[in-house]
Simulated scan of single mutants.
Amino acid sequence: MRIVLFDIDGTLLHAKGAGRRAFESAVRAVCGGTGQCGFSFAGMTDRAIARRCLRSAGLSDDEASIDALVAAYVARLDDELVGPAEVEQVPGAQQCLDALLHETDRVALGIGTGNVRAGADRKLRHAGLGHYFRFGGYGCDAEARSDVLRAGVARGKGLFSHARQVVVVGDTLKDVAAALEIGAVCIGIATGSDTHDHLRAAGATVTFDDLRDPALQRALLD
């Protein structure tokens, strides 16, 4: 059996900027308008994003301050995930997960994301994908993405002690780097600014445009 950890943003779903808007609103509230979010969030953990925003405002980035900013972000996220910018699945997400869900003797489905657990659950719920996953590693487990994946693997092995291999599915170079750091295979999904060539050059074993390709399911099962 293998543990498969899916990234969320850009891999399973598109939140259409909801996370950024929620963070920007939280930064204005917590930092008094002095913090900046003018950088790419791609592949970053929520705690790393919060730390950078606090530093840009010249504020303390101790753990309590990061906790407060992340909590303010989560409190605003639901409002940003509804309406005209409603979250949508990456093409093929539900079909891919449905197929894997029937391979319970071969695959254990988990999450490996920079989102804190509360944010991850909200995004997955709005996308209709939350019920597929029993465990995961989240941005509240650690600030470094590789440590997030390690937490997900540990939880997966706690449920499936006979699992031997780990596969990470992600759309950014940070996903690939973190997967390689923990000795996992990485499958790249080229839905964002990191192209097929970028992902493969970074070490992804194989890449796909999205989750519709039947070859992706075979790659996850073989």
Rank of each mutant, 00 (worst) to 15 (best):
Q89N: 13
C96I: 07
A85L: 14
A108Y: 00
R76E: 15
A57F: 03
A29V: 04
T45M: 14
A72L: 04
S65K: 03
A68Y: 00
S65Y: 08
Q89H: 05
E63P: 02
Q89E: 15
Q89A: 13
M44H: 09
D61S: 15
A68M: 10
V74M: 03
Q89K: 14
G110D: 05
E88G: 12
M44K: 14
H102C: 06
A118Q: 15
D79Y: 05
D62A: 13
D105V: 02
L69C: 09
R55T: 05
A42H: 10
E86V: 13
D105C: 05
S56W: 08
E86N: 06
A64W: 10
D105S: 08
G35Q: 04
L69R: 01
A57Q: 04
A108I: 11
G83P: 08
T104S: 11
D105H: 05
E86M: 08
R51I: 03
S56N: 11
V87K: 05
C96R: 08
L97H: 04
L100S: 07
F41C: 14
L81E: 08
Q94S: 12
G58R: 02
V82T: 10
D46T: 03
G92N: 09
C31K: 03
D61A: 15
D98E: 14
L109F: 09
V30F: 13
V107S: 04
D62R: 12
L101H: 15
D67N: 10
L54W: 03
E103P: 04
Q94H: 11
V116H: 02
D79L: 08
T34C: 02
C53F: 01
T34R: 14
A57P: 02
C31I: 02
V107C: 05
V74H: 07
G35D: 08
E103C: 07
G112E: 04
V90N: 05
V107F: 02
G112K: 02
A48V: 07
E103Q: 13
L81H: 11
T34F: 05
T34D: 06
D46E: 10
V116L: 07
A85G: 12
I49C: 00
D78E: 13
S60W: 06
D46R: 01
A64P: 09
L77R: 01
A93K: 08
D79K: 09
T45S: 15
P84A: 07
E86P: 00
H102S: 14
L97T: 06
A68C: 09
R28P: 00
A57E: 05
R47D: 02
C37G: 04
F41G: 04
G58M: 04
G110R: 08
A108D: 07
Q94D: 11
G110C: 11
M44E: 06
A50N: 04
Y73V: 08
S56K: 12
C37V: 15
E63W: 07
T113H: 05
L101M: 12
L59G: 03
A71E: 15
I49Y: 00
V87N: 06
C96V: 12
G114L: 00
A68K: 10
L97R: 04
A75Y: 02
C96E: 00
C53W: 00
V74T: 12
G112P: 13
A48W: 03
D62T: 13
L101T: 12
A99I: 04
R117D: 10
D98W: 07
A29L: 13
L81I: 02
C37L: 15
G35M: 01
D105P: 00
A99N: 00
D61R: 03
G83A: 11
A68H: 09
E63Y: 03
G119Y: 01
L81W: 05
